[in-house]
Design a protein around this nucleic acid. Structure first.
Lengths: 215, 215
DNA sequence: GGGGGATTACGTACACCGTACGTCCACTTC
DNA sequence: GAAGTGGACGTACGGTGTACGTAATCCCCC
């Protein structure tokens, strides 16, 4: 039985699998090695250290983004599609999301989405400065949104998100929170995300029109 | 020499100090105890476990937000002030920021900013649903922005942020990134943040006007 | 002042972590 | 066959969080 030889790719895949099954805290070199039926130290023949392995995980997850970018479509539709693509991978790998957003990647996998987004914004008529600004704005929104979405339910557990329950907040200290507790407690991440994307797109379109007016 | 008795507050303070001096990785129960001139296990008389200690750190940092909310001011100014207050604490405790945003708090310290923000938005005329939506949008933006700001320079180190350097990106694969590398490489977090806040405020104002139009 | 009970600090012990280092086996290439 | 090479392995070291048992200290009540 030849048993597929160890490789960086197999190790990263095992790590992703383990994280999604048992959470990021369960990741250890020994644990991953055991998962692969191999000694802990064998991993170091393919990966310099644990940190690099985690970077590999982030990169692998990020590189699974599927862009179906249609250069002929309206730029607003392209932006929508790209934003949703990000959210998609957060859903595919919820427990890896924190890893992806918490370590900035300088690799090709990290640069591709940036390239796509900049191309879209440039095609919409923004100059370099504005394109970068708008992109940063969008990334901040997306990262923040996804962090909340996966943070509130570390395992995407079934509905376990009371978050704010009406009974344990003092109405005298927090009248607004208390009054809006039902709204704060439940939230549909999907519609929240879409709301944010639309708001941003409209704001950007308005920005563009102001610029054109002064041109 | 009576030596101030150990307490949860002193332990949390020592942890914050240690994190800011040497980074979050340096935090261990033994290390904090040593910092306080005490045995490791003594900490457990005041803190149930390490995770709770870190939550205490997040809460303490968050509770240092200074709101100087003027209920008579324009709601846009109040929103601006609150957004900046968040950024302020990220600057005061850069290496704790990741901790604060990565663990959602259900405590009073975490609820106070929410209360203030909701009150502001309600006073601006938003109904409950919209106030919550807009608040979530703002939080996502702020969290994402601060994460980038502290992530790019883990120690707020002096200027060590090439981030994207023109020479190591292939212009054939990434024409836009390559062309805009100078812009992507350097960034003034202050103006980026302000740009984002203004964009959001304008978007929200526009949203408000649309609602009023249909009323 | 003198007990006594509770609270707190301490030390030891255990299981687990990342990884430096040396060994050994299986393979490829002459 | 011999030589060389690379990958898998085992051991070992220093560090981690914390369960548990013990000893010292403080405070209150008599």
């Amino acid at each position: 039985m030849p048993t597929e030889p160890l490789s960086r790719a197999r190790i990263v895949a095992a790590a992703i699998d383990l994280i999604e099954r048992e959470g990021a805290d369960a990741v250890s070199m020994r644990r991953i090695a055991a998962e692969l039926g191999v000694g802990a130290m064998s991993l170091y023949n393919h990966v310099p250290n644990k940190d690099a392995l985690l970077s590999g995980v982030a990169e692998a997850v990020l590189s699974e983004i599927e862009f179906t970018d249609d250069p002929d479509a309206d730029w607003t539709d392209r932006v929508r599609a790209q934003a949703r693509a990000f959210r998609q991978i957060a859903h595919g790998y919820p427990r890896c999301t924190m890893l992806v957003v918490s370590r900035q990647l300088r690799s090709n996998a990290g640069l591709l989405p940036v390239e796509r987004a900049l191309a879209t914004l440039r095609s919409a008529g923004f100059d370099g400065v504005d394109a970068v600004r708008v992109l940063r704005m969008f990334i901040a929104f997306i990262v923040g949104s996804l962090l909340r979405e996966v943070g509130v339910t570390p395992a995407f557990a079934p509905a376990r998100h009371p978050m704010v329950s009406p009974e344990d907040v003092d109405p005298a200290l927090f009248p607004e929170v208390s009054a809006l507790a039902p709204l704060l407690g439940s939230c549909d991440h999907e519609v929240d995300f879409e709301f944010g994307v639309e708001l941003l797109i409209q704001a950007i379109a308005a920005l563009q029109q102001r610029k054109e007016g002064t041109r």
